[in-house]
Structure formats: C-alpha cells, structure tokens
Design a protein around this nucleic acid. Sequence first.
DNA 1: TAGATTGTTAATCGATTAACAATC
DNA 2: TAGATTGTTAATCGATTAACAATC
Lengths: 208, 208
Amino acid sequence: MTDKQIPDIVVGRLPQYLRSLQRMGREGRTLTCSQELGERLGISAAQIRKDLSQFGEFGKQGTGYQIAYLVEQLQKILNVDHEWEIAVIGAGDIGNAVARYKGFSNRGFRVCMIFDINPDKIGSQIGEFVILDYANLAETILAARIRIAMITVPADRAQEVADRLVNAGVKAILNYAPISINVPEGVRVQYIDPSIHLQRMTYYMDES
Amino acid sequence: MTDKQIPDIVVGRLPQYLRSLQRMGREGRTLTCSQELGERLGISAAQIRKDLSQFGEFGKQGTGYQIAYLVEQLQKILNVDHEWEIAVIGAGDIGNAVARYKGFSNRGFRVCMIFDINPDKIGSQIGEFVILDYANLAETILAARIRIAMITVPADRAQEVADRLVNAGVKAILNYAPISINVPEGVRVQYIDPSIHLQRMTYYMDES
DNA sequence: TAGATTGTTAATCGATTAACAATC
DNA sequence: TAGATTGTTAATCGATTAACAATC
C-alpha cells in the first residue's frame, strides 16, 4: 500500500479522537467503540471508523477498540509518541499562561524557553523559566534544535517574529496574535484567536 | 429571498474576513478586492466572493470592496455591531490572561466578570475585576443577562461549570478546558486547546 | 472606451453517510 | 451460536473552483 494522501480534515480530527481516548483511559476504561466515541465528540460513528481505517485496522469486529492500543497508535501517527520542545515568544499575559500551562504533558509537548524584547522582563522568572532576550532568538532556537514555537506578541509584531522563527528553522507555529501571517512552504501555522471563535457563535444569536 | 440556510463552514470564514478587513482599515486602506483578501488569508478569491454573495452584494465590478462598508456589513451579519458581555469562569493563569486580554475590543466583546471557587481568590483583584464567588454564578449571570461565557477551569470541572452556565441562560461557551462538553440544543460550544492545534501540525513533521 | 472585478452558474472535486459482508 | 461492531464500498451530499456575462 503506497501512502495515499490523507485529507487534512481527517488529520484535524485525530487529535480529538486521541484526547477523548486518553480521557477514557484515565477514567479507567479499557474498551470503546466508534459509536461511543462519536457520541462524546459529536461525530458520526461511520466517520470515525472511516478516518481510522485510513491508517490501519485498529479495532475488532464485535468488540470495538482497545483504548490503550488505539491511543498508542494515534500518538505514533501524530508524532507525539515523544515530547516536542516549544519556544514561546512574548512574555505578556498569554505567554505567561502558556508557559505555565499544565495541559501539554501527555499530549506530546513541553515549553522549554520563553523570549521577550522588553529589557525589564529579560532575565526575570516565569515559573521555571528565565525570560530570554529576543535579540538572541535565532541562535538560541537553532542551538536547541527547536522546531515548534508559539507567538504571543502583539499583532503588529507577529509577522516579524514569524520571519525570525522561520530563519531559525522552526517548522510549526501556533500564533496567538490576531493576525494572519505568511510563512514559506514547508512551515505550518495554526491560529488561536478567541474573538474568531466567539463571532462564529454570535452569528447564530439574536442580539440580546 | 427567503433566508436560505448558510453553511456553518461559510459562517466560520466570515470572522476571518472581518479581522483582515479591519486590519486593512487600520492600515489606512480604503478599497480591497477578493483576490487581495484571498492572498492574505490563503483562501481562493472565488471562495470569498461566493461566501459574501450569500449575504448580499457588497462589491462593485471593476472596483472591488469598500473596506469600511464591508466591515460594517460583516459586523451586522455576525451580530458584533454591538458589544457582548462575557463571564469568565476560573481565575487561574488562563482566566487571568483572557480577563486582561486587550484583543476583544473592536471585535464585539468585553469581559465583564470573572468567577472562581477558591476562597483565597474570591474578592481579590484581576485587572479591573474583583473575583466573584462561583457559588453565586447562576444568579449573578442571570441578573446581568450574560449570554456568553468562557470556561477556564481544569478539565474535570468543565462539564459541571457548563451545566451551571446553561442553567443561567448562557447560549455560547468558549471552552479552554481540554475536554469535550455536552450542552443542550440551542447552546453553542467552541474549543480552544493548543495541544490539538499542535498535534495537527506534528502529524506532518518528521521526528526531530 | 478598455481594463478590472464582481456575482453567479455549472462543473468538478471531495467528504460524509448508509449499508452490509466479514468476523470477533 | 447470536449479537455486536468493524472495515469498506457505493451512494449521497455538500463544498470548491473555473469560467464568464454583467457592469463599474
């Protein structure tokens, strides 16, 4: 079987499956089935089976899926069967929160450094980290071979930061700044902008 | 024209259009066209024209779109031509960051209260807010007629908080806890989970 | 006018669902 | 065995794109 192209929309659902399955595991569950997983996630059972079948046969007819095994397989597929180190750029409130965030462990990530441009912040402490000088961004990230970064600077600095990160070899950027950024082919960007999510909901709401 | 059903995937792109257009406006621009907007967002020009045409005719052949006018129209469509008040539940690092977040203004939102269950936190200050007692959540939210809330509590408390919010009349929830929550018909949930976004990128990355 | 760009249609492309044989 | 659930196929459904007449 030559690796057929997996649609990105399928890739986007795998982390949701993984998260739910890990939770079931923590709840002491051993087995699940496509129907139950679908109900938890609001996704049809057929969809889940189809998505998973793109990568192999992970279940058993009449039984369902062994949670621990499927978690392990999904972790391999998503390349989170080891931990990625992450650099955070911008030590404001958001940078602070993500640097201290406990939710990355067991999900394949670990924040390992945080940068800021403000001399008053550089050298001071956030959780276990000393805030590093943004001026040394490229060399520090290159030396540590970091491939993933989060941008938590104001919108008007985000593109410049992204350019520097790309130069430092970063291949994946999670951008908390509310602006679209351009990166070359081969570098990926994802966005977190709460206003975008909120507007997607207010569309359906009558003015209060 | 009877209101045809607008696909949710189209609704999901409108906030992106709006955000880009607002930025162009701030950059002093007056006019744009579907091609330019598309390039900024990585969306085809045809897609943008098609999406917008679902709601009316906002452009001019040969000219493009008047930015200020289109911004205004999109704000009306998305119901953000006025400000929604938001309650934040959970005064940890994330709750703190969103409560102090400057990025809601001009996007249609304003955080107006924050709750916590921890007696040591209740009564203390975050930015301009006094942390309120989670015990009084329902009555406080009802009295203020708040329809939107953000959940920034640990995952194992998120469902319980959501249930309470729904009882208090909340219709839209932005959930920062890394867990799927169930809400009744008529209530909307959106999720922010950085690990999900990151895993969607590591899928494409070779192990470092 | 000539050039540019919209709004819209029809064609293409892709994703989801329903159904069921296989099988545990 | 009988019941349950997978993996997969074919059918349906929906979204995107290409193309162009309309028109500014």
